[in-house]
Design a protein around this nucleic acid. Sequence first.
DNA 1: GCTTCTTCTTGATATAGATCAAGAAATCAT
DNA 2: ATGATTTCTTGATCTATATCAAGAAGAAGC
Lengths: 190, 190
Amino acid sequence: MAELEKYITNYFGITEQNALKGISSLFKYTKINKGTFLQKQGNHCNTMGFVLSGYQRFFALMDGKEVTQWIAHQGEFTVDLTGFITGSPSRWSIQALTDSELYIIQKSDYDRLDQLVPRWFEFEKLFMVRCFTTMEDRIFSHLSMTAEERYHFFFKHNKELFNRVPLQYIASMLGMSAETFSRIRKKQLG
Amino acid sequence: MAELEKYITNYFGITEQNALKGISSLFKYTKINKGTFLQKQGNHCNTMGFVLSGYQRFFALMDGKEVTQWIAHQGEFTVDLTGFITGSPSRWSIQALTDSELYIIQKSDYDRLDQLVPRWFEFEKLFMVRCFTTMEDRIFSHLSMTAEERYHFFFKHNKELFNRVPLQYIASMLGMSAETFSRIRKKQLG
DNA sequence: GCTTCTTCTTGATATAGATCAAGAAATCAT
DNA sequence: ATGATTTCTTGATCTATATCAAGAAGAAGC
C-alpha cells in the first residue's frame, strides 16, 4: 500500500498520515488479465482503478471503428472521470492491453472519502484541474502540430509505452492512421 | 446581479440564497472595449471573468502564429483555469473580439469563497469536471472527425457566433485553415 | 518447433486540407 | 460618404496523411 499512498500524495497533494491510511484502506488490490474489460461504454461507472502495473486502453466506437482516447499506465487512474463523478453512462470502454495490477475503489466508498479526509473536495478539485490541463494541452497539440510533431512529442514523454502495447492504438490516440505512424517511426529509427 | 446568480446556479449547482448573494457580491461589473486584453500569455492570472455579453478569444503564439484555443461567450468564464487555480503563468492571452460586459472577480476574493459558501470546493470540483468533459469531447472530435464534420458539429451548437466574430478565429479553434473553413461554409450555404 | 493469429510495414494511389496569391467584400475611421 | 484596413473568398497548386492491398514480421497456442 505504500506505493498507493505515495501516489496519492503526488496526485492529490495529501500528506497527513491518517488521511492516507484511510484512503488507501478503501482500495482493493486486484490482478486482471490482458483483455479484461474494466468498463464498458454506456454502462454505469462503479469503480475507479489506480494502476500499479500494466496498460489499459480507453476507447469508443465511432462509425464502426474503435477510436482510442487514452492509454493509462502506472501511476494513473483508469476511470471515465465524467461518468464516475456525475453518474452519467461511461463514454469509454476500458480494456487491459496487458496483464495488470490495480488498486480499485468502489464508487460507494469513493463517495465517503469526504467524511474520511479533511479537505477532500479541495484535493479532488486540484486533481480535476490537473486532468483538465492535460486535456487542454492535447487539444492545443491538435490545433498547432502536425502528426509527426505529435508523434515526437509523445514519444519523448512516453518511450516505454512504444515497446509494450500495439502501436496501432498509440496511432489512434494521437489522431493518425497506423500506416502514417509506422512511416514516421521508420524515419525516426534511422 | 440576478443574471449572475442564475448562471452560478446553473454552473455550480448552488441554490442557497445566502451563498448566491455572497458569491455575486464579490464580482464587479465591468465594461471593456473590443481589443482589450483580459489576460496576457505568461502573466499571472489574477482575475476570472464571467461573460454577460460579447466574445473573448483565448489564444497562444506557436511558431510565430496565433492559435485560437477557444472563444468565450455569454454565460461562460474567461480565465486560464489552470493558471488561475494553480498559480502557474497564463498559457493563453485573452482578448475581447467585441465590446463586452463581464462580472470580474479577483483571485484574492475567489480564494475566500470557501469561507463564504458551504461546500464550495464540492461545487468547484463539479465545475472542473464539466470543463474536463468539454475538453475530452473536443479531443475525441479531433481523433474521430474530419474538418467538415467538426465544422458542422460546432455550427449546430454555436450558430450565433458565426455572425459575430472573424471566421478565421473559429477556423483556428476548430483546427483548420481559414480557406478550408471558407470552402466548407460555401458548400453549407448552398 | 510449427501453426495460427495478430500486428507491422511497405508501395501505390487517392484525397483532405494547407499554402500561396490576388481580388472582392465587409468593416472601420475620419 | 470616402478611403483605409481588415476579413473573406476563390483558384491553382502542393503536401501531409488516409486508404487499400499484400506481404513480412512477431507473438501466442498447441
